[in-house]
Design a protein around this nucleic acid. Structure first.
Lengths: 197, 197
DNA sequence: AGCCGGTTATGACGGCGGTCATAGTAGCGG
DNA sequence: CCGCTACTATGACCGCCGTCATAACCGGCT
């Protein structure tokens, strides 16, 4: 993985996001993160003097930026972009993971929200900005496809909501069916929002 | 609350669900559950010899049945039921909670999935059946409203997905906006699925 | 060489978690 | 009164976790 080429700090943030999205925040220990990142345990307090909360917050922020980057890459790779195509591409990331890995992991931002929203205000805030970071390029892409500006933001929220919710159901069912279902049902609505002209 | 009239066992299951949906599974201790239920700590191992996993599983199952019961009550209270009306009623439960309590808690099934799907197989299974228990009456209601049978199940999945996802975003933002957004955007699609005749 | 800031290494500490063991109580049929 | 079952009570055990303290490294600079 290209991650091992990065510095130890970024590796730990990356590993934290990976472990959190699989096991949740509570079940992810600092020692686990260091081990997974093949980083020295002593570096944790050096790079993250704010402790676990800081590490989690940075992992969440990293995930938000990563999701936004994915959206940009999807758009660049689509010849004739459509809202449903973008949504399908966003979801495909997880269905592909299921096909290759044989199981489904969740979204670190969702995990952090579920585990920390009521206890750690800073993490809740980090998750909110992560979602915003993710939704912004989606909404911009929609307007670029001809969706009226006043609906683009709402539809972006709907897309991410449906994705996150379906991901949870799919994990519970250990089956990506819910993901493909929301793509199939939501796609037409999204395309119908494109301004005809 | 009517809960104190029930037996201690059911009270503990109820309390577990409440604490889990607020703090997540990892951050919810057995002692906390007993204290919240005003039940003796010693009763935990008596009623739940399977330990925390059993308690969590029962809390998840209870939440699934509760959600299904809510759906039935919504339908009974609606003069002219429509898909969008049902969805709005399902979401309203949380927006109302925000208005009265001033903050948003999550869904215990989602929390259990996020925290346990990759570690406790029985809990993952319990969450899957809870979602199925919830989705079934929704799908049946949709068919009763004239939605073609082959789409009712898919739309029920989409409704629950959008609800769960929006709930996570709303919690992160500490604002129910995402919930109202998905109702507004998804409502028309749901109503459009009703067979015209 | 000597120093020094940025790192890594390691062990200890306090707290809390789930679980177990054991004893206690209350009710009740015999 | 006995014995039995259902339930309650309490404390102890062990392990893990996040955090801190302390010391060692190590490259580069003077």
């Amino acid at each position: 993985m290209a991650g091992s080429r990065r510095g130890p700090r970024e590796r730990m943030v990356f590993s934290a996001a990976q472990l959190i999205r699989r096991d949740g925040v509570g079940a992810t220990g600092m020692r686990d993160v260091a081990a997974h990142a093949e980083a020295p345990r002593g570096s944790l307090q050096h790079y993250f003097p704010g402790g676990k909360e800081q590490l989690v917050n940075e992992a969440v922020a990293w995930a938000g930026r990563y999701a936004a980057r994915r959206v940009a890459r999807f758009l660049a790779g689509m010849a004739e972009p459509t809202p449903s195509g973008l949504f399908a591409a966003m979801v495909r990331q997880w269905t592909e993971e299921y096909e290759t890995a044989g199981h489904l992991s969740g979204c670190p931002v969702a995990a952090a929200t579920v585990d920390c929203a009521s206890s750690a205000a800073s993490t809740r805030q980090a998750a909110a900005t992560a979602f915003a970071t993710w939704a912004r390029p989606v909404a911009e892409a929609l307007t670029g496809m001809g969706v009226p500006a006043d609906r683009a933001g709402s539809l972006a929220t709907l897309m991410i909501s449906a994705l996150e919710g379906a991901l949870i159901i799919a994990r519970a069912e250990a089956d990506p069916r819910a993901l493909t279902t929301v793509v199939r049902e939501l796609g037409p609505l999204l395309d119908a929002a494109v301004r005809k002209d």
